[in-house]
């Protein structure tokens, strides 16, 4: 489906990115994400995703001042999901249904997993991400979670197998340190 003129105007700077372009922007507009719960970092991720045109289904109320429902639609009508979610975004204390792609964001890092990931592995990783962090780190982690989801929507990360986590290492995010559990991610 071709981009409408108002969408070309709205997403022009994003379309300029080599990794996005017009076709990539269309993919972002048709990759609905379900937001399973709220935290400061999740609210930041929701704001970034809504601005980029990702359709969102928010199943929990946001903190004051953040986007949801009618406010979200007024901010960007494209962020209203019209089809079933293909990925989920949740705080580290995630307890919902595992969609083909799950991105968890906690005070200590971000994890993402494909639909074949072992649920025990995901839960253990999610617990390890919980913990205090300062507001700036929530902004950092929420932005990172949104970026990971966008790259998944654009097809830059292989689907399916595996579980990866990016951990916060004071005073800032260190280089990516993916964690993989051979016992659970090999389909055993």
């Amino acid at each position: 489906m071709a981009l409408r003129e108002e969408q070309i105007q709205r997403y022009g700077r994003q379309i300029l990115l080599r990794e996005v372009g017009g076709k990539g922007q269309e993919q972002l507009l048709h990759f609905p994400v379900r937001v399973e719960g709220r935290s400061a970092a999740v609210d930041v991720a929701v704001s970034v995703l809504a601005a980029s045109g990702t359709p969102l289904v928010c199943v929990a109320p946001p903190a004051d001042g953040f986007l949801a429902g009618a406010v979200l639609e007024a901010f960007n009508p494209d962020a209203r999901a019209g089809e079933p979610a293909r990925a989920s975004l949740a705080p580290a204390g995630f307890g919902g249904e595992l969609l083909p792609v799950a991105v968890l964001v906690g005070g200590q890092g971000v994890a993402f997993a494909g639909g074949t990931t072992c649920r025990d592995c995901l839960d253990a990783t999610a617990r390890s991400l919980e913990g205090p962090s300062n507001p700036a780190e929530h902004v950092l982690l929420g932005s990172l979670a949104a970026l990971i989801l966008q790259r998944l929507a654009l097809g830059f990360t292989p689907e399916g197998q595996g579980l990866s986590a990016f951990r916060l290492q004071a005073p800032a995010l260190a280089a990516a340190t993916p964690t993989r559990c051979p016992a659970h991610t090999a389909g055993n």
């Binding site: 070309i8 022009g12 300029l16 372009g21 017009g22």
Partner: peptide
């Protein structure tokens, strides 16, 4: 700018 190259990029993609 930036719509100059946005238009060109979309045209080339098509």
């Amino acid at each position: 700018c930036p719509m100059t190259y946005v238009r060109v990029k979309l045209a080339l993609e098509g």
